[in-house]
Amino acid sequence: MLCQICGKREATFHFKEVINAEERELHLCEVCAKGKGLSESFFIPSFSLSNLMAGLTEFEIPPSQEIRARCPHCGLDYAQIRKKGKIGCLLCYQTFKDYLAVLLEKIQGKAYHSGKVPRKGKLESKEQRQIYKLRKDLEEAVRKEEYEKAAQLRDEIRGLE
């Protein structure tokens, strides 16, 4: 088998990644593997094949839509973010939130953060965060038909507001 990058030398380095039952394989020769920092090594954990191979198509938006906005903090527009596949700052997330919401749904599924919340930060926003988290718990309690717990959460939220 020939190397997938240079197409000239015999591939001696084989890498496999499986996501959602979809296999991606990468076969490289020593030279190209070395170029990617991968040769002669005993397993490199931070290496992701999908990062290396996947296009940034997820960032695509319908061609008819033109986004004029620029992030007020870092000055990026959406075309730049899409081209690099990297977001610029916190305000980017807010400025382009409609597009990023679609993108995140594609990558992460339809979901909201339910993990750790920073302890410190500004006091007011910490309370907001707390209320937000309680609301999420409330939604879940209602969904699971745990009405006693829901009533309790409702009281807690009222107490904070």
Binding site: H113, K116, R119, K133
Partner: peptide
Amino acid sequence: EENLNYAFLPQWGYLTACPTNVG
């Protein structure tokens, strides 16, 4: 975090350069 303010939004959690790490 006691000495740093992290980029965080309630709905999206910790914000990262690549959207594959957000939350």
